[in-house]
Amino acid sequence: MVNTKVNLSGLTLDNPVIPASGTFGFGYEFADIYDINILGSISCKGTTKGPRFGNPTPRIAECTNGLINSVGLQNPGVEKVISEELPKLAKFYHKPVIANVSGFSIDEYAYTCSKIDANEQVGLIEVNISCPNVHNGGMSFGTNPNSAFEVTKAVKNVTTKPVYIKLSPNVTDITEIAKACEAAGADGISLINTLMGMRIDLKTKKPVIANKMGGFSGPAIFPVAVRMVYQVYEAVKIPIIGMGGVSTAQDVIEIMLAGATAVQVGAANLVDPYACKNIIEALPSVMEKYNINSLSEIIGGSH
């Protein structure tokens, strides 16, 4: 009998598989099709201080082995997330969840995180400083070590739960940003968010996406994710949630070998609503195939 349990800053997850923010709503939509309690945790839809409609449509462009999205942090705002969305999820999911928070200023990040920190369903806070789809928001904090440090520090000052900072791959050296977050007291690092991308329609000769550019995700970016997790694992001592194109149980093991303690599955959920379930069910036999008794023992095993 293999052991799929991992420990993420004191939270014991039954398995490392977590649907990534923005690909799973607030989880309850998926409860119609399978028992979502099999999930290690759920990273909820990105939440901001106030409600946001997001970007104009089209927001989606297909790519070879992936897609570009430019949703733009559509969410009902932190008050409604706490009063409506999380209670709906609580009916179906009985484990701690990951709250994913975005903002447009350091004060906003701190405000939203302090509100969500007080919610008992929330086991961990993932601070997104890497959304490529909102102007002057999110990613600008994640592409500069100083502002990444300031956001992390401000959030840590007003929260009690583990804080993970979600990093952008759209930087020259992701390890510099990761080190700044660690120095500011981050409990862990999530990576990678989407890569900036663009498609142009040959018929209209215009960008496919209304906002022109968006975040590229899917299996095509998996090697980039593995590389960056590997680099960040060597640069910091805090745990990593690895993500970026993970689609199979083999991918989960590979990105854990690179250094991830837990793994998020994003784009795959949009193609196959059962993606996380299939990965979780396949994990034991894939572990056996590669002589892995306990997943927690392989974290960073490739170094």
Binding site: G25, F30, P58, I60, A61, L270
Partner: peptide
């Protein structure tokens, strides 16, 4: 009709504004 990501309500790729709030065309 709208360009969709998932088709079942997960990604918010096809949202439109209505008088009754935001709605996902797919769901």
């Amino acid at each position: 009709e709208e360009r969709m990501g998932c088709g079942f309500g997960a990604c918010m790729g096809c949202t439109c504004k209505t008088k009754y709030g935001n709605k996902r065309i797919c769901k």
